[in-house]
């Protein structure tokens, strides 16, 4: 099993901060697509991903027990 964490307004689109999901062996980009199907209101374009609190690129693969977090970059200031 894996944990998927949603930060900031992504949390609102999903309705929860954390969900549990078996995404073993899937890549970051595949998980993004899965999430978009599951939560139509969720926009993950250009959203950063971290696996176990480390930067992850689209091609990185999740292992059992890994936590993936989605963090949207913002531009205000």
């Amino acid at each position: 099993m894996n944990k998927v964490l949603f930060f900031a307004h992504l949390k609102d689109a999903v309705g929860e901060e954390v969900i549990e999901l078996d995404t073993n062996g899937k890549s970051v980009v595949e998980i993004k697509e899965l999430m978009k199907e599951k939560y139509p209101a969720l926009n993950l374009e250009n959203v950063m991903a971290a696996i176990n609190e480390e930067f992850a690129s689209d091609e990185d693969i999740l292992q059992a027990g890994d936590t993936i977090a989605f963090i949207p970059p913002v531009s205000g200031g």
């Binding site: 930060f7 900031a8 971290a50 930067f55 992850a56 977090a69 963090i71």
Partner: peptide, 14 residues
């Protein structure tokens, strides 16, 4: 997120 009480620190060396 100060309202949702979230804080995360992502290593970026990779």
């Amino acid at each position: 997120d100060v309202w949702r009480n979230q804080y995360t620190s992502m290593k970026v060396v990779k």
